[in-house]
Design a protein around this nucleic acid. Structure first.
Lengths: 194, 194
DNA sequence: GCGTCGATGTATCGCGCCGATACATCCTGA
DNA sequence: TCAGGATGTATCGGCGCGATACATCGACGC
């Protein structure tokens, strides 16, 4: 497949490094603090990702003042290159399934600050329809079920349905807010900052 | 690793086949109807899993009346063997991290009907403390954050926190119900526990 | 001074499982 | 009549998690 379809990590790393240079260990901490509620980043994917990004020239090692280093303490600080910033912008522009699936939506959302309003809206709507389609399929499957389910299965269904419905409602609010915000500034063509 | 640590699929397949014999396609539909809100089972893992279970003798192919088959229509129906039932019981007895992690908890819960009350309780409590520990780490990381976060990041945190808190509350209710149910047969000690 | 324990730090390996894809048959409807 | 959709089995690439292995550091007790 065309490179970089499912790489959630690439966006996560590039996005984090955009704020400030970091080394692997702290990068992971940041990421888990930011998205720990949704997913858990691990070294097993982080370091290979950093290596790959380094090889692509999207990030670079940053040397601290070498005089202060005494014991040759290894601590590799990475920073975004110009190409990396470009790539990040490119990733932030993409509004496709790779943006609104379970694993990736949170990451994309976390960097919405750097995303264009139009793209934000399309991602939010994409996620919403993804969830609604899931609700549909589960509901119809449930309705077609002949045998009566035990109470645990039922409770699991109920809880799952409720969770997803709740997220849909959350998305509805976000979408409404986005729409409102994009129409409010009649005068002035909005700030195309950075 | 000792075999069968992370295999959520094994339990899912064995558990489903315990109800009634099924073939791959329908097995997947069942599973996705049952757990589609939490995860999506795919053929890419289902068929290899079936093959593995078959090789282990935990499931077996079931022949329909061969006279009615005309065109050599392939439709491989699997059923649980005696060993399979044993293995299923074994899996249902295990209350460990492999039971209360995100991907596996739903599957274990879905078959709680066949699980001992004590094991059910331990899994529910394990899941709860898993979530609380996650809440803790994210909350403290958030509190330690110096820089002020943008509104999107904040909203993501808020939503994530709320979702997890909600699940904890759900678990609390379930645990209370389990406790009540296990004490009902005795005269009540008016337990003011916790 | 000495041991140990936890946090910091980089790195790799196995492999479970997903998504996409291919291919074949059956049924339904325009 | 034939296209399209549901049914059905199967494989391949590869992402990313969990476990693990090291190494250094500061803090603590003793």
């Amino acid at each position: 497949m065309a490179s970089g379809q499912g790489r959630v990590l690439e966006l996560a790393v590039l996005g984090s490094l955009h704020e400030t240079p970091l080394h692997g260990y702290e990068l992971r901490k940041r990421l888990n603090a930011l998205l720990g509620m949704f997913r858990a980043f691990s070294y097993g994917s982080l370091y290979p990702c950093l290596r790959s990004l380094l090889a692509q020239g999207l990030i670079a090692e940053e040397q601290p003042a070498p005089t202060t280093i005494v014991g040759g303490r290894s601590k590799i600080v990475y920073k975004l290159t110009a190409e990396g910033k470009e790539r990040l912008q490119e990733l932030l522009t993409q509004a496709g399934p790779s943006a609104w699936e379970d694993e990736s939506f949170g990451v994309h959302f976390a960097f919405f600050r750097h995303t264009e309003a139009e793209v934000r809206l399309r991602i939010l709507e994409g996620r919403r329809s993804r969830l609604e389609e899931r609700l549909d399929s589960v509901r119809t499957a449930l309705a077609r079920t002949r045998e009566r389910l035990d109470s645990y299965t039922l409770e699991l269904q109920r809880h799952g349905l409720e969770s997803v419905e709740r997220e849909v409602r959350w998305l509805n609010e976000l979408i409404a807010t986005e729409r409102r915000a994009s129409q409010e500034p009649e005068q002035e063509t909005t700030s195309t900052d950075e």
